[in-house]
Design a protein around this nucleic acid. Sequence first.
DNA 1: TTGTACGCGTTATCAG
DNA 2: CTGATAACGCGTACAA
Lengths: 345, 345
Amino acid sequence: MAITIKDVARLANVAPSTVSRVIANSPRISEKTKEKVREAMEELGYHPNFIARSLASQSTQAIGLVMPSSTDKVFQNPFFPTVLRGISEGANEKQYALHMTTGKTEDEIFDGVVQMVQGGRVDGVVLLYSKVEDKVLTYLQKREFPFVVIGKPFKHVEEITHVDNDNFRATKEVTEYLINLGHEAIAFIGGDLNLVVTVERLLGYEKALRDFNLPLKQEYIIHEEFLREGGQGAVKELLSLEQPPTALVVADDLMALGVLNTLDEMGVSVPDDISIVSFNNVMLSEMSRPPLTSVDIGIFDLGFEAAKSLIQKVENPKEPVKRIIIQHQLIKRLSCEVPCQNKNY
Amino acid sequence: MAITIKDVARLANVAPSTVSRVIANSPRISEKTKEKVREAMEELGYHPNFIARSLASQSTQAIGLVMPSSTDKVFQNPFFPTVLRGISEGANEKQYALHMTTGKTEDEIFDGVVQMVQGGRVDGVVLLYSKVEDKVLTYLQKREFPFVVIGKPFKHVEEITHVDNDNFRATKEVTEYLINLGHEAIAFIGGDLNLVVTVERLLGYEKALRDFNLPLKQEYIIHEEFLREGGQGAVKELLSLEQPPTALVVADDLMALGVLNTLDEMGVSVPDDISIVSFNNVMLSEMSRPPLTSVDIGIFDLGFEAAKSLIQKVENPKEPVKRIIIQHQLIKRLSCEVPCQNKNY
DNA sequence: TTGTACGCGTTATCAG
DNA sequence: CTGATAACGCGTACAA
């Protein structure tokens, strides 16, 4: 059995409650006894038992992480290690621990969340994704359990604290960027439409085209998985069009990589024949040939701010709903150029 | 306040202890009362409080994950999401939750582990890396706390349950593969020598050369970070040699990607001028140009088996030390070929 | 400034 | 088969 507060109390010749107060650094304890108690703790190698503390104080100093389905391709995106790092850092700063749950199916994930929450394992939860219809989010909301989402909630945006980019504006900007480069035939390759981020980006793309009075063609809008294989299918469809696009807005770097490869195989040159701009600016985007022009969305900060605002919320229940927007930034590399004039592929 | 066992007891007209037994599905309770109690639980929407249960039973049904330093480049490797998925699945099967700890420095990580362990937050720990000198491992060992490591422990291999590949053999095999292809000038690009996996792979490489009586040149052995930039530096060194290698054994796909890019910039063609084989077979390895021949090390299984064997150990303290070797497999793609005879780069 | 006593929600022991 | 009752380790009114 481990060293408890009682052992320390005995050694220091004080009551257990005094030891408890020393741990909490209560101002109502004399420096002298504090010192005495601390020495005893040191001598015995005492470490507080979090479980007991949690039970007594009804708070765990732990936050729960809800990941998307582990079978989901999204899970493999380098996005995750990075947000995780951000969250972890934000949590560490406030001495919070991390509790995770994943699962293969939505139900598994949901059960995991319920266990964390009802089981009292965590004080709050951060959702690492934002889907269009989400059981987990609904549950958390109804239960009034503290949580924040990374991304933009599909509904009740005003009532849910979230950390997000301005994906609408970002996509509008990059589309404009391509337009200003002289492109008029610009296609959009997005991921799963169940992810809110996808719809936001699509909207931004459409807005830019409309602002510039460019035609908005359905054939130019493609949705595939957030990954490689997705990109490949998309490209083939696009290039077989009568008037193939001269530029592509791709919703994710990984997909862009797939696009790049397929293009390469088809003998289409980037950026000479076709320009590409994508999102996230993960490490890989500078490793591709050519390096990708990509929107840096501050992934680390998304996580960091999410953790911080969740903890605030946990520690102060009347904290107002917040919406934190992380700045984005277009990182220009070599995948964009003025459009070709008259190419035949 | 949430629904407790007492509320259920009251509604079902039984004692709290009876409810507890029903939850544990004790065989000594009549089916009739079980049914009655279950109905009450249902009606009240009861969920057991894990914290209280942990305190009483001195076990948490949670396992702790120790990640490498978040500032470490290794952290960004696609390896992690995948092991994580494996661990998560292994844990889910046995209804264990996951508790994580990371940190920027070794000390932060160490403190995190101590808190998990002494704080009684977890029943066991899995180390997601294996370093040459590791404070955390030493601590866990001295405390006789259940843990398993993913990778090969540097010392006390016989006394530590671990899940690993046979990296020595794997590297020996791929080196032989290159030799049999006709290569004689084969270089090795490895990662951080503090990681045990690096030294294992280096050893395997050397063994193959020795077995075939090929010279073992120091200039052919390079260590860089486990990432992109590392790869680039390495290649330049290698190609500026008097007799540059015709084949490369690269210890990680990500590094190999960097190598590929640098080679491309220098106008060196893969596999025509130089062959490459690397490790891990992460998703990216088939997305590179050319697709990488890579050793699949069963990352998911590493995690899965680690979780399973840890849980076994936790549930049965006298479980013997185990060493689980996950099979590897060479996935041949397009980065290897017979060597060039007489090329001038 | 410090000690006493009780409660947090369960499990486990021991009667009955 | 079931019900009291005592832990589990700590926080915290309430007393002193």
